[in-house]
Deep mutational scan, measured.
Amino acid sequence: MSGNGNAAATAEENSPKMRVIRVGTRKSQLARIQTDSVVATLKASYPGLQFEIIAMSTTGDKILDTALSKIGEKSLFTKELEHALEKNEVDLVVHSLKDLPTVLPPGFTIGAICKRENPHDAVVFHPKFVGKTLETLPEKSVVGTSSLRRAAQLQRKFPHLEFRSIRGNLNTRLRKLDEQQEFSAIILATAGLQRMGWHNRVGQILHPEECMYAVGQGALGVEVRAKDQDILDLVGVLHDPETLLRCIAERAFLRHLEGGCSVPVAVHTAMKDGQLYLTGGVWSLDGSDSIQETMQATIHVPAQHEDGPEDDPQLVGITARNIPRGPQLAAQNLGISLANLLLSKGAKNILDVARQLNDAH
């Protein structure tokens, strides 16, 4: 009898209710805020589980004197976190989706994509230029951005401005803007500013005609071990179906173009009346040469937790077992079709030249 009692006690200790789920994140304040929001949602869904947040620095956090596009290494903000995932030191990792490459290392998958916040870019102005827009900034004003995508589009749109690289986390960039006289304004992701509670610093939100956004911008991705079915089931509740389908289309477009950090590629997606609209573009580094096109596809946005595919093969690095396969494939095909259209119009040449120029500098 006593033996059975011990077995029952052991089973209770090993039951999922007692389990601590370890969540990996970057150390920056924004990353911690984003991770806290994901953990809060998981806690609400699984009140019996405990969650421990483990923060670590990544290569991208450490190399702050070089433009991201020049470092010449993929997975700048993800490699150390993936290493911890691989060694079973954490069970899942919360990322900004735009930091996750469209091809993940073997053994990993994006197990959830959370509801997207505003994906557009924002302009934050130096205190002396508050009330201005990019259009009304004085001639030769210097605007800071760490992104080739932003610089290429904005140089084309605002030729009277000069664009220079600015690195560091959000706090560091804002301090550089406010305390030094080098920059009249800087460009940042609206979602990051909003998550930090800095709505009052948003001086201008850039519309798609001015600057399309990065693939996955404004959404959070939760990376897990691809074979860890328990954790895949656990994080599945975080999937937002519309965000998922938009981001599958965007990531398929980028992957098929073979774009990345070192080339200016941008997108804009919208879901309306059962249609998914995808606009994508590529630019030369100075913005003088560009190709942009829009395509659409009829896609039914499923309700969360309709029964999805059981075999769960990944699409552009994403596993969404609780979302039907048909809409996911339709979104992926839309991204591939748009990429093929741009490639047929000469996108590869623009991107190759951009890559060579970026590598040469």
Rank of each mutant, 00 (worst) to 15 (best):
R22C: 12
G24E: 01
G24F: 01
T25D: 01
K27A: 13
D36S: 12
A40D: 11
L42S: 01
S45G: 07
P47R: 12
P47M: 01
P47D: 09
L49T: 13
L49I: 07
Q50C: 01
Q50G: 06
E52N: 04
I54V: 10
M56A: 12
M56V: 07
G60T: 07
K62L: 05
E73T: 14
S75E: 05
L76A: 06
T78F: 01
E80D: 14
K87G: 07
V90R: 01
V90N: 04
L92F: 10
V93L: 09
S96Q: 01
K98S: 01
G111F: 03
G111Y: 01
K115I: 08
R116T: 04
E117N: 06
N118Q: 09
P119C: 10
D121C: 10
A122G: 11
V124T: 06
V124M: 13
H126W: 05
P127W: 14
P127H: 05
K128P: 01
V130R: 14
E135M: 14
E139Q: 15
G144W: 04
Q153E: 05
Q153L: 07
F158H: 14
F158W: 13
P159R: 10
P159C: 13
H160K: 14
E162K: 14
F163P: 11
N169A: 06
R173Q: 01
K176Y: 10
L177P: 01
E179I: 15
E179D: 07
Q181R: 13
I186A: 11
L188Q: 06
T190C: 14
T190L: 13
T190K: 10
T190G: 11
Q194N: 06
R195C: 05
W198P: 06
V202T: 14
Q204I: 01
I205N: 10
H207S: 13
E209H: 09
M212H: 14
A214K: 01
V222P: 01
Q229K: 08
V235P: 01
G236S: 12
P241D: 07
E242V: 14
L244Y: 14
L244E: 01
C261Y: 07
S262H: 03
V263S: 08
V263Q: 15
P264V: 01
V265M: 04
V265G: 04
M271K: 10
L276P: 01
L278K: 01
L278N: 01
W283M: 01
S284T: 15
S284L: 01
G287I: 05
S290F: 13
I291W: 08
H300L: 12
P302K: 05
Q304K: 14
D307L: 01
D312N: 15
T319L: 01
T319H: 15
N322V: 11
N322T: 07
R325H: 13
G326S: 11
P327Q: 15
I336F: 10
S337C: 11
A339V: 10
S344I: 14
K345P: 01
K345G: 05
K348P: 03
I350D: 04
